[in-house]
Write a protein that binds this DNA or RNA. Sequence first.
DNA 1: TTGTAAGCGTTATCAA
DNA 2: TTGATAACGCTTACAA
Lengths: 335, 335
Amino acid sequence: MNKSFVSADDVAKRAGVSRSAVSRTFTPGASVSDETRQRVMAAAQALGYHVNQLARGLMRSESGIVCLVVSEMDTPYRARLVRALTHELQRAGKISMLINTDRSDGSADAALRQTLNYRADASILLSGLPDKAITRLCLDSGQRIVLINRDDDIDGPFRINLDDGHAARVAVSAFLRAGCRRLAFANSEVGTPSLMARERGFIAAAEEFGLEVTVQRYGNTVYDSGRKIAQTLFAGLNPPDAVFCVNDLMAFGLMDGARHDFGLRIPEDLCVVGFDDIEQAAWTSYALTTFAQPVNEIAAHSVALLQGDPANDGVQSVNLHAPLIWRTSIRHKPQ
Amino acid sequence: MNKSFVSADDVAKRAGVSRSAVSRTFTPGASVSDETRQRVMAAAQALGYHVNQLARGLMRSESGIVCLVVSEMDTPYRARLVRALTHELQRAGKISMLINTDRSDGSADAALRQTLNYRADASILLSGLPDKAITRLCLDSGQRIVLINRDDDIDGPFRINLDDGHAARVAVSAFLRAGCRRLAFANSEVGTPSLMARERGFIAAAEEFGLEVTVQRYGNTVYDSGRKIAQTLFAGLNPPDAVFCVNDLMAFGLMDGARHDFGLRIPEDLCVVGFDDIEQAAWTSYALTTFAQPVNEIAAHSVALLQGDPANDGVQSVNLHAPLIWRTSIRHKPQ
DNA sequence: TTGTAAGCGTTATCAA
DNA sequence: TTGATAACGCTTACAA
């Protein structure tokens, strides 16, 4: 019939060795003679044997599974990060389980709980706000946890953050060099720590130069929010000549609004800086000067932390630099 | 110490029942008295018990794991599809393993093989070209397989495809109604079946009206390819007044090239139609008329097929309609 | 280095 | 309905 799966037993019989010999052959650091290894390998090849990770995970302390917990995963930045993470995890011999936390109907929590059921070794939380109690539960169950751009006040997880405040300062000085004086900040109402850090940093840096910042917050960090903010910002009496947008998507919306609804030229009449450096920022219609998320570094650090890389023993958090990528949405590129 | 995981045994002891009673309580269709169920549930709650899916998968024929095999998953269309699929799978109580097949260094094959090791019940192939031998292997191991937009000539998998040919016809007639006569088709060199179907359909439909089509193929289905094609298309002696792009990303590149490098106005001087209806198509800078991928339907059909839904017993392939979404990159919207 | 035997946490079978 | 017992496929002492 459909005896679809070959077991170690089958291989052992065919190779004329014991079950344990087979097991050892497929266990990296085990002691097997070259000859038996050869025999086992040959038999395994012939039969099409694959170690059953379910059974292996049952015995071993680790299952080799890492969970990626993410909401709105089709957002360009998130999608790129997921891509980088899966790639990096696969290189490390891990396999990714993807948990979609879009719905707030509890299905997200249920899914996260699932990862416990599969005895995942670790979880990487890119976003979404799973119940803090569940995060706790994962930690208590021995999972390692990495938080990306989320500065929760819970103890235990590893954290990876960007120098948001510093980036905001860089944005201010870029605007000043471009001759801008009427600064604005376009934010969402999401209010996550990293977004708020950009806002605070921008305001603080502007203040040092005696400049006030018009802050607008609206909706989610999406295109339409930027579009909406453009409407209120440029319809006012004293429209800004420079806007720092909390992410690229909002920047695109703002630029389209400024150009289409108000006939503004970029960068002649208006300078714009974004954050993320998603693919669209390089498109000719936008050519957005923006801070780049060091996606590959984030991914590399994440799996290093998860693996308990001795190089970062005791390290609980990593701070990465987001460099400014110059395009033409701002005047006066230095040099 | 770190007795981090509670087993059914622990629950059984606390509830004063047998292991089997616990197992039955967590098995949907099993016969347990209301009283024992209550007792077991209470004990499980108190101890924080979760069924170990690894062990369950070992016994049962199915593990509850579904693999998503995808390359370039940060592409807007793919990302949206992955989002929809994970959502739908979670609703069905399944969990997704994500396999990144970007690298052609064999790590993809290795990863796909991994899914066999975890005894995944099924695989959904969105893209990428995993070795046909591996697809075969998965099938032989009893996995169900769904192919999305990939008409491989291998037997066994379920298929989900779009009416690419029909869409191409609709594009032609839309162009004709807009008064266009010099038709062009912008394709990539990727040559997957669905992309080629769009090309063939477009050429055939144009021919029926006695029109010839200028076909340009370049690189991948990305923005830069569209940009490049614009260069060769509009620098020629007889530039087209209508271009059907094989996907939205290429359309954006083509539009930016046409406008920026050649000063063409859209839709006055040039009509453009794309395919996918990704988010950016709705952005003001593009406002692209395009065929929508019925992402949610694709996801729904995928999991229905995987679950062996009796409603589609014997069904081996599903053909879905991609409706044309009208925006302003083409003149004369009907009515 | 090798084989034997005892788990790992489930579910399925079979009496009771 | 319930409980004992035998799988499931693997790893890992332990002894040879």
